[in-house]
Computed example of a mutant assay.
Amino acid sequence: MDSASVYTRCQDRLLDLAAELTAEQLATPVPALPDWTVLQTYAHLAGVCADVVGGLVPPSDDTTTARQVAERAGDDLDAVCAEWRSQAPALLEVFARETRARYRLPALDVWHHENDIRGALGLGAQTLDADQLAHFTVGGLARGWAPDVPGVRVVAVDTGQEWLLGERADLELRAEAFELARAVTGRRSVRQIAAMDWKGDPSAVAHRLPTLPAPEVDLAV
């Protein structure tokens, strides 16, 4: 994944969106992140950027993400965005310097949170770079797939990408790269995953696809 390019594109779009948001929109709860509003999600993104620049090794745990939001609780959106914008060049230097996969996580984080925010505001999905996100997330899932559960051939129907989860293709899952990336990163409920285009019965594996807790409610974006 080209983390710097993915991150920069997402940040640019989110900063452009921020300039248009009303107070009501900023206070909107984010269904994918039930404890946060839109403004708090921006605060988290600024916090991740500052923390990684400051030496934090990704990923952030729940305590860290809560701190990131709490530290910016008194800041308005302009202040949050100004901090985020000022720290981003140094984060891009971290991306260039660090080769471990965990340093790709801030790019994954901002891509998903952009779509989380868009979903909360009733906006459509932003699918650019979904192929890169699917490659990173589904590829990671394949490397850790348990050998004692059915194997799954996963096909991204819009990009032609394919992965094999396990040693054999007992089942097949076909979906767009965007849906695969969202499902594997805890943005699709188990019901939504089971309702995707499967060959074979997915009941033994649908709950194993999310690498983060799956939401209880179905998400539209």
Rank of each mutant, 00 (worst) to 15 (best):
E167V: 15
W145H: 07
R102N: 12
A146T: 13
L209Y: 04
Q87N: 13
L180R: 00
A66N: 07
L108V: 11
A204D: 11
D35I: 08
R102T: 12
K199N: 15
L164E: 12
T41A: 06
E20L: 11
R85Q: 11
A169N: 14
D109W: 01
E162H: 09
T41C: 07
L26Y: 08
D12E: 12
P106V: 02
L26Q: 09
P213H: 13
L105M: 15
R85C: 06
A32R: 01
G139M: 01
R13F: 05
L15M: 14
A125V: 03
Q161F: 03
A90P: 07
D61W: 11
V149A: 12
L212W: 09
G122Y: 02
P59K: 06
H113E: 07
A204S: 10
R182Q: 11
D218V: 08
V6D: 01
D197S: 09
D12L: 10
P215V: 05
A156I: 05
R208W: 05
H207N: 13
V217H: 15
G119S: 02
D75N: 14
R118D: 00
P58H: 09
L26E: 09
Q132P: 07
E83A: 08
A4M: 12
D148K: 08
T211H: 06
D2A: 13
P147R: 13
A204N: 07
C10Y: 00
D148G: 08
A101K: 15
G186C: 07
V6H: 02
R187E: 00
D2E: 12
G55Y: 14
G160M: 07
A32Q: 00
S5D: 11
P29V: 09
L123Y: 08
V155M: 07
R182M: 15
A23L: 03
L26P: 06
A181E: 01
V53Y: 04
L56Q: 09
Q40V: 05
L171A: 05
E114W: 01
H112L: 14
R118T: 02
